[in-house]
């Protein structure tokens, strides 16, 4: 979920070859490529919305709201164009505790991954809920986004979701 580092070219392994204690040759092989991603209009609008502190879904063929949005209906494949603002708060549909976060995950302290149905949407968005322990997580709990002060059009413009006070 955090922004990826990019910009490295593929590197040659030749220089780092070495002989192990038992006489075998060993070399590191690092494969790195620069990647970028084109979003298209609807996902682009969703990300631009995040930069502006707004969460968008899209109206699907049967009238329900899908958030986050795609530019096609997952059931009929018809194009979708009508953006609808959702949230910002929502309800936790399901969650799982991340006890030992990995390098590219939001924080280096434990947190909960959660599927969150934002108010007004019929589908769920994956994000992270910041609470001190699993005891504070509950299906059905209400959460709201904590926005970063500086935003760039990225899912991490929402730093995390936190329980709605009260």
């Amino acid at each position: 979920m955090s922004a990826n580092a990019t910009g490295s070219e593929a590197s040659s392994a030749g220089e780092s070859a070495s002989t192990t204690a038992d006489g075998r040759l060993r070399a590191d092989l690092v494969l790195e490529y620069p990647f970028n991603r084109t979003t298209g209009e609807i996902i682009g609008a969703f990300l631009t919305g995040l930069r502006e502190g707004v969460i968008y879904g899209v109206r699907t063929s049967d009238g329900s709201i899908m958030a986050p949005p795609t530019d096609y209906d997952p059931n009929t494949a018809e194009p979708l164009t009508e953006l609808v603002e959702v949230g910002p708060a929502g309800e936790v549909k399901s969650w799982t505790w991340c006890a030992e976060p990995r390098r590219q995950q939001p924080w280096n302290h434990p947190f909960a991954w959660a599927l969150i149905r934002l108010d007004g949407a019929h589908t769920h968005m994956l994000h992270a809920v910041r609470v001190a322990s699993p005891a504070e997580m509950r299906i059905g709990m209400r959460v709201e986004p904590k926005w970063n002060a500086e935003r760039q059009g990225h899912i991490c413009d929402i730093a995390y979701f936190e329980p709605v006070a009260g």
Binding site: A10, S12, A13, G14, A27, L29, Y33, N36, R37, T38
Partner: peptide
């Protein structure tokens, strides 16, 4: 193919261990 999302030339030039490129 959406080649603009990476760099196809380098993607076709995989380094081989123990070999000079």
């Amino acid at each position: 193919e959406k080649q603009s999302e990476s760099n196809a030339m380098w993607a076709l030039s995989l380094p081989q261990p123990f070999s000079v490129s």
